Simulated scan of single mutants.
Amino acid sequence: MLDKPGNSKHRMRTIGLVDMQSGGDVSRIITRGVGHLPGGSVLEKMRYIQEHGDGFRRLLLSEPYGDPYMSLDLIVEPAHPKAQAGYIIMEAMGYPLYSGSNTICTAAAVLQSGIVPMEEGEQTLVLESPAGLAHVTAHNHNGRTHSVTTRCEPAYVAARNEVVDVPHYGKVRYDLVWSGAYFVLVDATEQGFKITADEMPAMAAFGHALVTAARPQVTQEHPELGAVGPLPFAHFMGPVDKVDDNGFRSRSATYVHPGVICRSPTGTGTSARMALMYEDGEIKDGQWLETVSPRGSSFVGTVLGPDTVAGYRAMNSTITGKAWTLARSEIVVDLDDPLVDATDLEDVLDTEPG
């Protein structure tokens, strides 16, 4: 029986969005619609919504509201006094602590939407991610952000020459690298891939099998950040071409579990690749690597210099890219809609009516 008008409590909610893309990957920036999240740091806020409001992530990454190829970036109050805004990253795999492409999109959206006032020319911006502070340099002109360079999380090689038996594919060798999340890095040529657009379904199938098989033998603990969840990513490494004395180029692709090959080569994937090259002496301080995705988009990573993470030899780097605005919109969520699972959604949404 249909409800009669006025017989039920008003259960409409609205969510404000700015959709951006960087390298072809869509990041949906949530500017309003979520209420206060308990916790001091952005990491604590992330863990709260992960445990008590994951329906929000599922809603906006699933039909009819979105799709799993998107990412979400929820703008929150920062805790660190140096940060001008905070952001929580949500993807099909869960809650990454840091992401290069999401940081590029969030920074551009924050400036172009006026959440942080834009300055003409070069502007420094500090964002608080769950992993800590993201130091960003934006280049702005006439109200638009034309490029964003973000300093990455220190990346380090956690394990070398690991082998896992992958059903239907046999034994696969990989290296494990942390660059804001754990990545298993595989030689694309060894697996028969040239990293082209027509190979994306086959790479997704291989990536799914590889991550599923490798998860039981890959740590879920970061030595400083604690629990980070099961292995989320695999990165396909193509051959490296030398461009000049300071730069290199390589076709690259990132798999996100479950089932997604990114349209961009991803910032954290690029950082992980550089960390492995740095460990092997193949790239040095001040040199850069351009990674090119299966669809032809690219990011440029630049090595800043060495660091350490809990005794591991690590590398600092930056990622440079550009974000484009796709849409500014408002989503209406009717909590009585049978397609909306409100069980772990309603409590994190603003109670303000639509």
Rank of each mutant, 00 (worst) to 15 (best):
K9Q: 14
M12R: 11
G23Q: 02
G24R: 04
V42E: 04
E44F: 12
R47Y: 06
R58T: 07
Y69T: 15
M70K: 15
G86A: 06
G100T: 05
T106M: 09
L111G: 01
I115Y: 02
I115C: 06
V116T: 11
Q123D: 02
T124C: 12
L133Y: 01
A134P: 10
G143R: 08
G143F: 03
T145V: 15
T150N: 13
Y156I: 09
V164Y: 00
H168T: 15
G170F: 07
W178S: 11
Y182K: 12
F183P: 02
L185T: 07
D198T: 13
E199R: 10
A202Y: 03
A204R: 05
A214H: 04
R215H: 11
V218P: 00
G229V: 12
V240E: 08
V243A: 11
R251I: 00
Y255K: 04
H257E: 14
H257S: 14
P258E: 12
T268I: 00
K284N: 11
D285M: 13
E290P: 02
V292K: 00
S297N: 06
F299N: 01
F299T: 00
D307E: 13
T308L: 13
S317G: 10
T318Y: 01
W324E: 10
S329C: 10
I331H: 05
D334G: 03
D347H: 10
T351E: 09
